Computed example of a mutant assay.
Amino acid sequence: MRPVVTLELLATPAEVSRVRRALGPLGIDVQLCASELVTNVIRHVGEGVPVTVRVWRDEGGRVRLGVTDPDPRALPVLVAAAGAEAESGRGLALLDALAVRWGVEQEAGLKTVWCELFVDADTSGTPERSGRHRVSAGALGQASARS
C-alpha cells in the first residue's frame, strides 16, 4: 500500500497548521492525531527538525498515520492522568482514545510514531466506534510496535 499523503517539513508550529489543512479531507480525528504527533516532535525533539508525515488509507476505511523524526531515543510516553493545572500531557491520551492502535517503530537514526484509525468510507472523518478494540503490549514508551 502506497501513502496517499506524504508531507516533508520542518517541525514548527506553523507547519502543524499546514499538516491539519493537508489532512482535512481525511477527517478531524486524523487531523488531531497528526497535530499531536508533530507537536510532540517540536516539544521533545526540537523545533525545526525534519519530519515526514505519511498517511495510508485502505478501501475498508482504515487510515494509518506515521510521523517520522530523526531521534529514535525520544519515545512517546502516555501520561496516566494530567493534573487539572497541567499545561501538557493530554495529547497522547487523546491519540490513544481516537486510535484503534498506535506504536513506535525505530530504525538507525529514525523513529516513526504511528497510529491507525477507522473513518467512514464517505471521508467525513466520523470514526466508526462500534467494534473498536484496543491492542496493548507492555509498557508504553518502549519501542514495541503495537500490532
Rank of each mutant, 00 (worst) to 15 (best):
Ala137Thr: 07
Trp102Phe: 05
Gly83Lys: 02
Ser35Leu: 02
Ile42Val: 14
Ala93Gly: 09
Arg62Glu: 15
Arg64Phe: 03
Leu9Trp: 05
Gly89Asn: 06
Thr39Asp: 02
Ala14Thr: 10
Ala143Glu: 09
Gly89Arg: 07
Arg57Gln: 13
Gly27Trp: 04
Asp96Asn: 11
Ser17Val: 14
Arg21Glu: 12
Gly46Asp: 12
Pro72Trp: 14
Val63Glu: 05
Ala145Arg: 10
Asp122Trp: 01
Leu117Tyr: 15
Arg54Gln: 15
Leu32Gln: 11
Ala74Tyr: 12
Val19Asn: 10
Gly66Cys: 05
Thr112Leu: 13
Pro25Ser: 12
Glu105Gly: 04
Asp122Leu: 04
Ala86Ile: 14
Arg101Ser: 00
Gly48Leu: 06
Ala11Lys: 03
Val51Lys: 01
Phe118Ile: 04
Thr68Lys: 03
Ala121Ile: 14
Gly61Ser: 07
Thr39Gln: 10
Ser136Phe: 05
Leu140Gln: 10
Ala143Ile: 01
Glu59Pro: 02
Leu10Asn: 07
Leu78Arg: 14
Arg64Pro: 13
Ala99Arg: 14
Leu110Trp: 14
Glu128Val: 14
Arg62Gln: 07
Ala22Val: 12
Arg101Trp: 03
Asp122Val: 06
Asp69Gln: 03
Asp71Tyr: 11
Trp102Ser: 15
Ala82Trp: 10
Leu110Met: 07
Leu10Asp: 01
Val49Ile: 01
Leu140Arg: 14
Phe118Ala: 09
Asp29Trp: 03
Arg18Phe: 09
Glu47Lys: 01
Ser147Lys: 02
Thr112Pro: 00
Ser130Arg: 13
Leu78Glu: 09
Thr39Glu: 04
Asp69Ala: 11
Leu98Gln: 15
Val67Gln: 08
Leu10Thr: 03
Val77Ile: 07
Arg132Gly: 00
Arg132Glu: 13
Ala86Tyr: 06
Arg43Gln: 11
Asp71Thr: 03
Gly60Glu: 05
Leu26Asn: 00
Gly138Val: 04
Pro3Tyr: 00
Ala84Lys: 13
Ala11Asp: 04
Ala139Pro: 14
Gly83Phe: 03
Pro50Gly: 05
Leu37Glu: 02
Pro3Arg: 06
Arg132Met: 12
Leu78Ala: 04
Leu98Gly: 04
Leu37Thr: 10
Arg64Lys: 15
Asp122Arg: 13
Ala84Tyr: 00
Ala97Met: 12
Pro13Glu: 13
Ile42Pro: 15
Ser17Asn: 06
Val5Tyr: 11
Glu47Thr: 12
Glu105Lys: 09
Arg146Leu: 06
Val45Tyr: 06
Leu92Ile: 11
Asp29Val: 12
Ala93Lys: 09
Ser88Ala: 15
Gly91Gln: 06
Asp58Gln: 09
Arg73Thr: 14
Gly131Pro: 04
Thr39Ile: 08
Val16Ser: 04
Thr112Glu: 10
Pro76Ser: 05
Leu140Phe: 13
Asp29Glu: 10
Ala80Glu: 15
Thr68Val: 07
Thr6Pro: 06
Arg62Cys: 10
His44Val: 01
Thr123Ala: 11
Ala86His: 13
Pro25Met: 03
Ala145Val: 10
Ala143Gln: 12
Glu59Trp: 07
Leu95Ile: 15
Val4Ala: 05
Gln142Val: 01
Ala14Phe: 03
Ala22Ser: 13
Glu87Gln: 09
Thr6Leu: 02
Glu128Tyr: 07
Asp69Arg: 12
Glu116Ile: 05
Leu95Thr: 11
Ala143His: 04
Arg64Gly: 05
Val5Lys: 00
Arg73Leu: 15
Val100Tyr: 10
Pro13Leu: 02
Asn40Trp: 00
Ala82Gly: 04
